[in-house]
Amino acid sequence: MTERIERPPVRELERLARLVRWHVLNTVTQSKAGHIGGPLSMADLLVALYFSELSIDPEHPDDPERDRFVLSKGHSAIGLYSVLALRGYFPIDELASFDHGDSRLQGHPDMRLTPGVDVSSGSLGQGLSAAVGIALGAQKRGRDFHTWVVLGDGELQEGMVWEAVNSARRFGLSNLTAIIDLNGLQQYGWAAQQGRDRFDRSEPWGHADLPMILRGYGWTVIEINGHSFAEIFDAFDQVKRAAESGAGPSVIVARTEKGHGISFTRGTYKWHNGVADETQLALARAELLTEGDQS
């Protein structure tokens, strides 16, 4: 049945998020290439969505009534795959095929191959437009589902994103919510300015008031710490209220840390992508897995 599952206790969600982080690092390391920092920064947000918010059914991934999820920052695919696997869309063992030839788990999400992937992505900046089209189509067809889309903060430099921000409001899409993974880093970016930036490079939106810009476009803007389940759930509640009141699209600006959850990957652009060596992998295992967790 396509439905929202009962919200698990926060401790369980935290455990799932640690598992996701482990699968991200381990899978990418075994595959010998892939992105780390972006998948880790959005892990808590995706766990919260898939394990409490989205009305979905892993047994029927194409149910027309399901909520839609668009990972606009497609390079973080392994993060999404790990969550989908834990949620039951495909076996966890299948993660090992990530990036391999003949795999359903392509380097970037492919809606025609992977159960649970609603929209293909990889070229940054396109997911919000796709989500606007989906939400608009739902409106026209009289469907009740909600459309969610996750964007990177570097990704917001793409002009197409702002075309879509404008359209979403013009079309009054209260059934659309964007989440910005504001992890303060992108792939390379600019040199950090001492005392002004959170991490080792300049913040993509350090020079501008992003929430203000989004408010100016008429969106409902909710600012949270993207690693706090309490704040994430509070944001989901606000989204629901905004949607019910027909306030137009909403956006959760989630302040996160790139590479969050693993001591050596956090807060550095250097772990945008990469693979761990044996010592690092052992350390990550110790930091993320508890007894009883499958590795």
Binding site: S129, A130, A131, V132, G133, L136, G137, K140, E163, S167
Partner: peptide, 12 residues
């Protein structure tokens, strides 16, 4: 670009 993305979304 947005037109194309929206048209794609509608096609789903």
């Amino acid at each position: 670009q947005n037109m194309v993305g929206i048209a794609f979304g509608l096609s789903t």
